[in-house]
Nucleic acid binder design. Structure first.
Lengths: 290, 290
DNA sequence: GCCATTCTCTGACTTTAGTCAGCAAATGGG
DNA sequence: CCCATTTGCTGACTAAAGTCAGAGAATGGC
């Protein structure tokens, strides 16, 4: 497998290498071209450019001066905060950016051109798979404090989604709760999944000495579904419950979360009679942690 | 499709970018690391290094001096031609190269690590498809003179393969010939397929005014099979025959080339009674060129 | 043996892509 | 209003990557 990954890598950097440098071939250094691209047609705050491209403040400033003297960019004060400056493309800058875009398209076309219809379809499908799985592999799941900003965001989204999908009304303070102190070691643990620093999922475990651990608040952002992330998160939570000493784990959920029901069943969870009185729940699952 | 290619490209360069720079993270500039890698455990002529990496003569020389002063490389005279110099890795150089290799392996593993067994299998399969199709797309088919070096090489391989696969003995000067003058415009045309400058296939067309064109000497190197290249080459030859004014094309072949029989049938060729007396042939095909 | 070519090396130079320290203006919490 | 912080800018510096011209030795065709 490692050999295939490396072979893939070699071929892709060789052939797509030209593509990857969608900036090459224009009489413009890579740094400037990247900046031009990142500014976008809408304009962008200079501080955001620094963060997104991971560049030094002084360096960005100098690149902007260079683009400005070339008549491609105009840097103006931000309204609101007078310290912040906003870079905007001029008409010439937009033309240049369109050229980069066009160049990218043509390179992609030239990649497909020698192939017949069936091969193109195969290539595009395989590229889609690689893309999806590489994105899935970039997702990082880490334990965080349940009151950390990312955790709060995910929990809020979780509650909002439940209330959007059910008419019954979900109140996280009622029934089988999962308050911050219940999800913080040693009582429990909370996890956040993130992609490129953006929180896209969460889940928690409540340990109970001598009794089944509870898995709570499992949520995956809509845009991150279909990556097999739910399964990975669930496995992480199960491992956490097992490490906490539990032999068995419990989950209660609602039928409105039909993807979740399918996931639990296929991950070896079995439906059992209600083990608590959570008013929002209508399905109760149990799994023996080997 | 173009959008998928570009999306693939963005994700791959982002995630595999680190991988692609298998050289990063060692206290050594990229240029030196690439050179170290390219020299290989066998050593390599300096002029080949220049060609393969596409670098300036002076630049390579300086890089070699730097590696030499670091004790990683030894540059020695070539036996035979005293102008040519050969770069060889020292024991320390081989250790350093092994470190690069190891680093590559670990990066590939880290890419697979967050995925479960099924996802890994999917990713590796999709990577294999992308690789194969990108290689297929890099193959270039161009018309060449039938006495050009690449053409001679392919024709020799073609004859050698026929004689390896059949006990009947194939003599290209007997029967339905395809001498250079018959495959040179205006009488005909010869094509060579090449991958990264290496000839990996060939085929020719003989035009006959008012009569079916003949397709001759179609061959694909063993290492380039399975890329759909035969089909593409055949389509090129058919197009050439059509451009030459033919309404119908002919091919004769032998059953020992069973892949070829399958290709012709699936590409719309129909088997017909013998139209010539080529002693090596045992199957005759015809196709109407729309 | 002559001469064009090949191969490598050196010196002098440039561009790109940064890093680092420090400054000045604006902001916001107390 | 004070003061720490944020934001962007400038000057001074570095390393990497590469280009170009030319020199010197070896080679090969004639």
């Amino acid at each position: 497998m490692v050999a295939q990954v490396r072979r893939f890598n070699r071929v892709v950097t060789e052939r797509v290498g030209a593509l990857s440098d969608r900036f090459l071939g224009l009489p413009r250094p890579l740094g400037e071209a990247r900046l031009l691209w990142e500014i976008g047609s809408e304009g962008c705050e200079v501080r955001l450019l620094r963060v997104r491209l991971g560049l030094d403040s002084g360096y960005v400033s100098r690149l902007l001066r260079s683009l400005e003297s070339g008549g491609l960019v105009k840097v103006v004060m931000s309204r609101g905060d007078q310290r912040v400056r906003v870079a905007r493309l001029t008409a010439a800058g937009r033309r240049e950016r369109a050229r980069l875009d066009d160049r990218s398209d043509r390179l992609a076309e030239s990649l497909l051109a020698p192939l017949n219809a069936r091969q193109r379809q195969q290539l595009v499908t395989a590229m889609g798979d690689v893309e999806r799985l590489l994105v899935a592999a970039s997702v990082e799941i880490r334990p965080v404090d349940p009151e950390d900003a990312d955790a709060r965001y995910c929990l809020a989204e979780y509650v909002a989604e439940l209330n959007r999908r059910s008419t019954r009304g979900f109140d996280p303070t009622k029934g089988a709760t999962a308050q911050p102190h219940e999800l913080r070691p040693p009582a429990g643990q909370f996890f956040v999944a993130s992609l490129h620093g953006e929180a896209i999922g969460c889940g928690g475990v409540k340990h109970h000495a001598g009794a089944p651990a509870e898995i709570k608040r499992m949520w995956i952002a809509p845009q991150a579904r279909g990556l097999g992330l739910g399964r990975r998160l669930l496995a992480t939570l199960e491992a956490c419950a097992r490490t906490g000493g539990a032999q068995v784990a419990h989950i209660e959920t609602s039928a409105v979360l039909h993807e979740a029901l399918g996931l639990y069943r296929s991950a070896g969870w079995v439906e059992v009679p209600p083990f608590n009185d959570e008013p929002f729940a209508d399905h109760w699952f149990e799994k023996r942690l080997a």
